[in-house]
């Protein structure tokens, strides 16, 4: 096992991450406006941006899901309790004592157990909640004539808002945790360049070398 510079995030993954980040920021900003928290832009313009960004994000998700399934990358998100306690202990105690991060990134396992669990929840619970409630709102025209439409609108809008709050809370924690790497900017750099340092065994190194994934 040797520490090597390995391309962990492919070009698509990085594109996916950063365009998703931009779209979600735009959605949070315009969503907050539509919700009545600010009036930086005109209501109609904020609605237009919100809907356009939501459609773009959905398209992106469709591509991302396809990518995860076809490349097998979805395996990174398989949940495990193995080592979860250690990670939690590190972030609540060890990090203040200068203890090393207990997780060793490998080519087969990019995310630590806590990270994997968080992303899994994001992808399986929060994203679908926003997606389904948002689409239901977007397609209001299809059900606005139903007798339950008025109450339904309020319920769906409330679910959408609640999910948005959770997303903002996630984003804050996500951005913060990113700064806890070796250096403050290290992990962001990885998401920009795609390369990270990790333990690689010789057999893996062969394959990675063939695929041009070694730095």
């Amino acid at each position: 096992m040797t520490l090597m510079r390995v391309r962990v995030f492919t070009r698509f993954e990085r594109f996916w991450h950063w365009s998703q980040a931009a779209l979600i920021l735009a959605l949070i900003f315009t969503g907050a406006g539509l919700h009545g928290f600010h009036r930086v832009l005109k209501f109609g313009d904020m609605l237009t941006i919100h809907v356009a960004a939501a459609l773009a994000l959905m398209l992106l998700w469709i591509f991302a899901i396809f990518w995860h399934l076809t490349t097998g990358q979805w395996r990174h998100y398989r949940p495990t309790t193995e080592g979860l306690g250690q990670i939690i202990r590190f972030y609540s105690i060890g990090i203040f004592r200068g203890a090393p991060h207990p997780f060793r990134k490998t080519w087969r396992r990019k995310h630590n157990p806590l990270q994997a669990l968080t992303y899994l929840m994001l992808k399986l619970v929060l994203n679908p909640l926003i997606w389904v409630s948002g689409l239901t709102l977007l397609l209001y025209d299809l059900w606005r004539k139903e007798p339950w439409a008025a109450g339904g609108l309020e319920t769906v809008a409330t679910v959408h808002t609640a999910a948005a709050f959770l997303m903002v809370a996630f984003l804050i924690m996500h951005v913060y945790v990113i700064t806890t790497g070796e250096t403050v900017g290290e992990q962001i750099e990885t998401m920009v360049t795609g390369y990270d340092r990790m333990e690689i065994d010789p057999a893996e190194a062969e394959v990675l070398k063939r695929d041009g994934a070694l730095g």
Partner: peptide, 28 residues
Amino acid sequence: GFYMPGRDSARWVDLIGLSLIGLALAGA
């Protein structure tokens, strides 16, 4: 008597949501 986006919201959801964001910020 009716829900209108931008005017109406479930206040308790806003309250809990903003508290959650506050907690996340304070935690960070």
